[in-house]
């Protein structure tokens, strides 16, 4: 349990370690994309950590990185094929950000720093914690950006062929709060994440991710 909480707060991949920012910024224009991206990364992370931990005895130091990248890209390809077949709409929306999970530094980083050093149990828990932490941050950013940038909240739209219904809300009427359109544009992504990290730092006290 402690390892999982550690991944969510103390070593939060986005807010503290600043890894995997590409997908964080690109995919958070609506809530649905955010949690599906989070889910995909978590699945890849869990499996890559388990596999890495299982084969760590056979992998020598010099071939570490290529071997791990190969494992990760195989896992990502499996997810790509599954999504393409079962939820093609979400596959279209994700575009190139789905294959880019391969170079998402979180996955490789965890494989190198944790899974290749500890047993299967610990690395599984670590992956789960980091994955949940990543998904939570994605959901918070997406919630803010979609509600204030578009006045809507999408929970099930592209995946509606799986569930059989859509779940979309209109939060504010345009006459009450005019949508701040720039929030769903790229500039809004940088701004939201910057402010979120700032707030996180001030709540936590101190600023330990200051670059030296």
């Amino acid at each position: 349990m402690k390892t999982i909480i550690n991944g969510i707060i103390k070593e939060n991949p986005v807010l503290v370690l600043l890894l995997g920012l590409c997908s964080t910024l690109a995919i958070t224009t609506n809530f649905e994309n955010a949690y599906i991206m989070g889910l995909c990364v978590t699945i890849v992370l869990v499996f890559s950590n388990i596999i890495t931990s299982l084969i760590k005895k056979f992998v020598t130091k010099n071939v570490e990185v290529p071997v791990y990248i190969l494992i990760i890209s195989t896992l990502v390809t499996i997810i790509e094929i599954l999504l393409q077949n079962y939820v093609p709409a979400i596959y279209e929306v994700m575009g190139i950000y789905l294959p880019l999970i391969v170079v998402n530094c979180i996955v490789l980083g965890r494989a190198l720093s944790v899974a290749s050093k500890t047993n299967v149990r610990t690395s599984f828990k670590d992956a789960l914690g980091i994955g949940i932490g990543y998904t939570l941050v994605l959901m918070i950013i997406a919630l803010f950006r979609e509600i204030f940038g578009n006045n809507t909240l999408t929970i099930i739209n592209s995946t509606s062929n799986l569930f059989g219904f859509k779940l979309m809300y209109k939060i504010f009427d345009n006459s009450i709060l005019f949508p701040m359109e720039f929030l769903v544009k790229p500039a809004g992504a940088f701004l939201t994440l910057g402010i979120l990290i700032g707030i996180f730092n001030s709540i936590k006290g101190g600023n330990n991710d200051e670059p030296n």
Partner: peptide, 18 residues
């Protein structure tokens, strides 16, 4: 401000650049 030093302010600067 102290809690915005480093990465947060860099991201906000990037927003303006965008």
């Amino acid at each position: 401000p102290n809690s915005f030093k480093g990465y947060p302010i860099a991201l906000i600067t990037a927003a303006i650049m965008t």
